[in-house]
Amino acid sequence: MTKRALVMLTAFVAIVVFGGAAMLYSSRDGSTPQAVAVSSGDSLVRPHSPVMGSEAAPVTIVEFFDPSCEACSAFYPIVKQIMHETGEDVRLVEAARKQDKFQPVLEALFANQAEWADHGAPDIEKAWQIAAGAGLDLEPARKDATTPEVDAVLAQDIADVKANRVEQTPTFFVNGKPLTEFSPQGLYDLVKTEIQAAKSGS
């Protein structure tokens, strides 16, 4: 990927993905959960990170991802299924959005990934158009992409990526532990292990 393409993709992701305070997924009853306040000292969970699930959940999944990443697209339904199956025991920390359109935009980007996320040269303008088709209002979105607020969120996220040694997407942490067996079953097993440990008090 060229530096120019990386900068353009970063700006696009910044506005579509970062900067708000709403949840990635809908709750099990179809309503939209509210953001949970978190400590600004946690490099995995920041105040701008939305949290889906109970604040009291004993297990927290944190995901670093990229909408142009094929593996991220493949894991998307798997993470949703884990959240559905584990109910109140697990919460998910993801990226937020400003226009309350994160989930439909992300799903549209994943569904049309082959059209815009060409390896090494993502078509950012095409991604914007796909986002618009999913309901994103492009005029304010493009303006928001250049704000100091988004710049600050990006700078913090880049620092957190380095601090947590994230070298690929998706990268998962479960209760702060990195997922070392990178597979859907590996993620499921780590979540289950953490749930059992929390319930047994160990």
Rank of each mutant, 00 (worst) to 15 (best):
V62C: 02
V62L: 08
V62R: 06
E63V: 15
F64K: 11
F65E: 04
F65Y: 11
D66R: 08
P67C: 11
P67A: 12
P67S: 13
S68T: 02
S68H: 02
C69Q: 08
C69S: 08
E70Y: 07
E70S: 13
E70R: 14
E70L: 13
E70A: 15
C72D: 04
S73F: 09
A74G: 06
Y76W: 11
I78V: 15
V79F: 07
V79R: 01
V79M: 10
V79T: 02
V79P: 08
K80S: 00
Q81F: 02
I82V: 09
I82H: 01
I82K: 03
H84D: 12
H84L: 12
E85R: 04
E85H: 00
T86N: 13
G87V: 08
G87Q: 10
E88H: 15
E88F: 09
E88P: 12
D89V: 12
V90Y: 09
V90K: 04
V90N: 10
R91T: 00
L92G: 07
V93G: 09
V93F: 12
V93D: 11
E94F: 15
A95P: 06
K98Q: 02
K98G: 05
K98S: 07
Q99M: 10
D100V: 10
D100E: 10
D100L: 13
D100Q: 08
D100W: 06
D100Y: 09
K101S: 09
K101G: 07
F102I: 14
F102G: 15
Q103T: 13
P104H: 14
P104T: 14
P104E: 13
V105K: 07
L106Y: 09
E107P: 01
E107K: 13
E107W: 08
A108N: 11
L109G: 06
L109K: 13
F110V: 03
A111W: 13
A111L: 11
A111G: 07
N112A: 06
Q113H: 08
Q113I: 12
Q113D: 06
A114V: 11
A114W: 03
A114H: 03
E115V: 05
E115T: 12
W116H: 13
W116A: 02
A117Y: 00
A117F: 06
A117P: 10
D118E: 13
D118T: 14
D118P: 01
H119Y: 11
H119M: 04
H119C: 01
G120I: 09
P122T: 02
P122Q: 11
P122D: 01
D123R: 14
D123A: 08
D123I: 05
I124G: 01
I124S: 04
I124A: 04
E125G: 00
K126C: 03
A127C: 01
A127L: 10
W128S: 07
W128Q: 09
Q129H: 06
Q129D: 14
Q129M: 15
I130S: 08
I130E: 10
I130H: 07
A132H: 09
G133D: 09
G133R: 06
G135D: 13
G135S: 09
L136A: 04
D137G: 01
D137A: 05
L138C: 01
L138Q: 03
L138I: 04
E139M: 03
E139A: 10
P140V: 04
P140C: 00
P140Y: 11
P140K: 00
A141M: 12
R142G: 12
R142S: 13
R142L: 11
K143W: 00
K143S: 00
K143V: 04
D144F: 01
D144C: 05
D144Y: 07
A145D: 00
T146Y: 08
P148N: 04
P148R: 07
P148I: 08
